Amino acid sequence: MKKPGNEFGMSSKTHDVESEELSSSEEDESEIERELAEVTFEDLQKAKSNGSLTVFKKPDQEKKGGRANKNRPTEVSCKKPVSRFREVVQVPKKVVRDPRFESLCGNLDVEGFRKRYDFLFKNNLPAEKEELKKQLKKSNDPKVIDQLKERISWIEKQTKFESTKQTDAAILAEHKKKEREAAKQGKRPFYLKKSEIRKQRLTEKYNKLKASGKLESFIEKRRRKNAAKDHRYMPYRRSANSEQQS
């Protein structure tokens, strides 16, 4: 007769052997799945067409860029994420050009530009100023009146600035002409500073006002303007009531 203890021992041993075989088979299946996951789709198709289901794992090696055949498309890994923004249509890049610093546009002729657009400061802006003054007298809307005054002030500044530039340009041109004649005689050229140009401009203005008889009125107007500026910064005298309260 067989002892019951031996039967339980044999059954436990067989159970351990079966569990080890199952675990080894599961490991083999997982290993096969890992190998098949790394096999390319092209190799699987070749194995099926040949009738052999055995696919050998290729040794791990770094994939080099390029194509095996020039007629094949380049293989790209599906593990790399595709960028969200792709350049589907190549748009030509906009190139911003500044004509002041472009050799293609030529050199700026300041005198020629001033002569060609001189009609704006001599005819158009003065005519617009007179029209705006007429509208200012007829208008009763405060907003419209403020807009008209701002536009008139802007026109006056532009015309005054342009006249100053023209005067400075004339002074500089006359000085250059004299210096060219002096250079022909062997003298060293003298270049005018901005302060010298301003002095000559004020001298010319003074001579014109004196010749026209408007010098006294101009000086009186300038004196009142300077007095108003000084009056703003002068301290006020305290009244007697305020001194007694303090």
Rank of each mutant, 00 (worst) to 15 (best):
149 K>R: 13
197 I>E: 02
146 D>E: 15
200 Q>W: 05
152 I>M: 15
154 W>F: 04
192 L>I: 06
168 D>A: 12
164 T>F: 08
160 K>E: 10
147 Q>L: 09
202 L>P: 00
187 K>I: 02
199 K>P: 00
166 Q>D: 08
175 H>I: 03
150 E>V: 11
161 F>M: 07
197 I>V: 15
164 T>H: 10
173 A>G: 09
174 E>T: 07
183 A>V: 12
173 A>H: 11
186 G>S: 05
178 K>W: 03
146 D>A: 15
164 T>L: 10
198 R>I: 06
145 I>G: 04
176 K>T: 09
177 K>D: 07
185 Q>M: 08
161 F>A: 11
151 R>E: 10
156 E>R: 03
181 E>N: 11
151 R>W: 05
154 W>G: 00
183 A>C: 05
160 K>T: 13
157 K>T: 04
167 T>Y: 01
151 R>Q: 11
192 L>R: 02
157 K>V: 04
197 I>Q: 01
181 E>L: 13
158 Q>W: 00
156 E>F: 02
182 A>Q: 14
163 S>K: 05
156 E>N: 05
178 K>M: 06
172 L>H: 01
156 E>P: 01
184 K>Q: 14
175 H>C: 01
158 Q>A: 06
164 T>I: 09
177 K>L: 07
147 Q>I: 11
183 A>Q: 14
179 E>P: 06
187 K>W: 07
178 K>H: 06
156 E>Y: 01
144 V>W: 07
185 Q>N: 11
167 T>G: 09
195 S>Y: 11
202 L>N: 03
196 E>K: 07
175 H>S: 08
145 I>H: 09
187 K>V: 03
175 H>E: 08
193 K>W: 08
